[in-house]
Amino acid sequence: MENVLRPVIVVGGSITLTLLLGWAVDVLLRRADERHHETPLWGLLRRCRLPLQVVLLAAILRATFRETRWPSVDSHQDRIGQTLTLVIIGAGAWLVIRAVSVAVQSAYARYATVTRDPARVRRVRTQVTLIMRIVTAVVIVVAVAAILLTFPGLRTIGTSMLASAGIIGIVAGVAAQSTLGNLFAGFQIAFGDMVRIGDTVVVDGEWGVVEEVTLTFLAVRTWDERRITMPVSYFTSRPFENWSRGGVQMTGTVFFQLDHTAPVDLMREKLHDILLECPSWDGRDWSLAVTDTTPSTMEVRAVVTAKDADDIWTTRCAVREQLLAWLAAEHPQALPRITMSPAKSSRSGA
């Protein structure tokens, strides 16, 4: 009877103790969240309950599994102990990553609520995203290293490889030169405030919004829903347009090639009427002027403003369409014309 009760007590007691500790921690976090509404940290920390319980259960079983005194357990003590150790390491890494993620999300949420500058919020979002990726990579590497150290054979192999570590490091450095360059470029982008998530950029003639920034690549969502993925080193080695730097307000131009008889004054009045009915125009500024001439046409430039890149595109399209339609209907002579005359025959009449 003792051979049955002892394992049940050990395993059942470990599970019960783990559940009680997890419940107690959850209650404390819930009460802390109710008392401190200004920060979401305590509520977010409740997401760590599951990895915490796994760590507690594995640690308790690691300390008490020999008390079961089962013959099968006694004969495989080393394997069971090592397995539980691996579970503790893996669950501990999971808990650390989850806790750091919660802390980062809490700090970002508080910063986003008290900061009214969208550019700063996007900059902090980019930085915390990259910091979280770095922390995750470091924790995983440390956890894998700790797991390998639990195997005596791998420790021996690792010791024997230290003599050739210099050569391996040189080879790896040469082989990973591009990757390391992108890695350092990612740090430069994150903390140099060159480009942020949500910025409107123009790269290689493509207009889009920065959707994702990682340690090695950057994704841009174009206006037609395509995704352009490029290494982050592109943004540190080549010029690009960032329309979100210095504020999101924009000024746009619309050019017309018209006949010299085009009524510029009437066009100016019509442009103002169009803008007054255009919801995407922000009302800051507008103008219309003749900027160039050729022997057959003149160039007319309309200048409009809008609150962001999307609205400036909409405003420019509306001005272009409506002004051309108005000219075609009211002043068709203002549109460019090609003057043609019949060719004279070189033959003389009989």
Rank of each mutant, 00 (worst) to 15 (best):
E2G: 01
E2V: 01
L5H: 01
R6V: 01
V10C: 06
V10K: 05
G13A: 08
S14M: 04
I15N: 02
L17W: 07
G22M: 03
G22E: 07
A24I: 13
V25S: 11
V25C: 11
L28I: 14
L29D: 07
R30V: 06
W42Q: 05
G43D: 07
L52Y: 11
V55T: 09
A58M: 09
A59Y: 06
R62Y: 13
R62V: 00
R62S: 14
A63K: 07
D74Y: 04
Q77T: 14
I80E: 07
I80G: 09
T83H: 07
I88C: 12
A93E: 03
I97H: 04
S106F: 08
S106V: 07
A107L: 13
A107T: 09
R110Q: 15
V114Y: 04
R116E: 13
V121S: 05
R123A: 15
V124H: 09
V128D: 01
R133F: 05
I134N: 07
V135A: 15
T136E: 12
V141E: 02
V142P: 01
I147Y: 06
T150M: 11
T150P: 03
T156E: 15
A165G: 08
I167N: 03
I168K: 06
G169R: 06
A175V: 15
A175F: 14
G192T: 10
M194V: 13
I197K: 12
D199L: 08
V203G: 00
W207M: 10
V210C: 02
L218K: 04
L218M: 14
V220R: 02
W223T: 12
D224W: 12
I228Y: 03
P231V: 04
V232W: 03
Y234H: 11
Y234A: 08
F235N: 04
S237Y: 00
F240R: 05
E241D: 13
N242A: 06
G246W: 08
G252W: 05
T253C: 00
V254W: 05
F255R: 14
A262P: 09
D265L: 09
R268D: 05
L276T: 09
G283H: 09
L288G: 04
L288S: 05
V290Y: 01
D292Q: 10
W313C: 00
T315F: 06
T315D: 03
R316Q: 15
C317S: 12
L323Y: 07
L324A: 08
L324H: 10
L324Q: 12
A325H: 12
A325V: 04
W326H: 09
A329G: 03
A334N: 08
A334D: 07
R337S: 13
I338C: 02
T339K: 08
S348M: 11
G349Q: 12
A350I: 11
